[in-house]
Design a protein around this nucleic acid. Structure first.
Lengths: 158, 158
DNA sequence: ACTTGACCTCGACCGAACTCGAGGTCGCAT
DNA sequence: ATGCGACCTCGAGTTCGGTCGAGGTCAAGT
């Protein structure tokens, strides 16, 4: 019952995973090293991936696009049953968790955008009257580190 | 008219700027090196900043939080009149530019969030029926580099 | 005059998220 | 059995956004 010569194999090589997911093989090994994905090995020590890894990768990429670090993603994924298909409950828990994070970020962005717009109205020549430039809520805290969300669109700004 | 002994001096030392803006002095020098801010020097070679630098810094931080790179920010700031108070027209141009970028990002995030939510509904046990996991539009392209938008909220996820 | 703290430069280092290259093995087709 | 591409490991290199430390100067208070 291990499927005939079908075109949907149960195990995938790293090359197949890379092509199917669009994630470079170098990154796949890197993710494995960081504990985001796992793999079995063939007799000859070559990686073989369960098809589920594709779902996991899509999840990782999605989360990354939103600005979560690999560590955060790894931790979140760790709450899912190791290596197997998660239950609806698992997903719900995770989804709710991230939804909150997403909501917060969307909210922050919208506030910023709205302020910027208001800024046009105020002329922004006076520091006092400009909401954007008065560091009240989000501008207050300055955390260390070097955040960056690469613009996917080549040439939006600049 | 170089103001008396007031508590709002026209020029600020790097330490003052750092305290007032919340940006570490190391970062201030770094920003200067990267052309995001400028400073004059005293006879003894110490930096003195115009008060306007605070506005500029708030702007930089704001833009950074949204995920723009220092280079993008620098380029945008470069469209403003060098070192002087920008006109309303200047601001309008810049604001419009970034508003588009912001809108796009907000939009992407919202789509992701909505998909995640829909995902809960679908149970997410099947790759085929799950929108989130099917890489259509935004998941398609995988760019190089190492993007990251640090979560400001300590302990949202993880 | 002296001390103290804030400031200067410059180069090294950090962590995140990867990529690249060297040198070697696996496995499949011919 | 031979060739060839896809795979392996491991260490070094890259970019971004900074921080740190050494070694030295400036400026203000006593």
């Amino acid at each position: 019952m291990v499927g005939g010569v079908g075109k949907l194999p149960n195990v995938l090589t790293i090359g197949e995973v890379s092509r199917r997911s669009g994630v470079p093989h170098t990154a796949l090994r890197f993710y494995e090293e960081r504990g985001l994905i796992t793999s079995e090995r063939t007799a000859g020590n070559q990686r073989k991936y369960a098809r589920a890894v594709l779902r996991r990768l899509a999840f990782i990429r999605t989360a990354q696009r939103v600005g979560l670090s690999l560590e955060e993603i790894r931790d979140a994924l760790a709450t899912l049953p190791a290596g197997r298909t998660p239950t609806k409950t698992d997903w719900t828990r995770l989804s709710n968790l991230w939804r909150g994070e997403l909501d917060a970020r969307i909210d922050a962005m919208q506030r910023l955008r709205d302020r910027l717009t208001a800024c046009i109205g105020c002329g922004c020549l006076s520091l006092k009257s400009c909401n954007l430039m008065n560091k009240d809520d989000e501008l207050a805290a300055y955390g260390p580190g070097a955040p960056r969300l690469r613009a996917r669109s080549e040439g939006g700004i600049g």
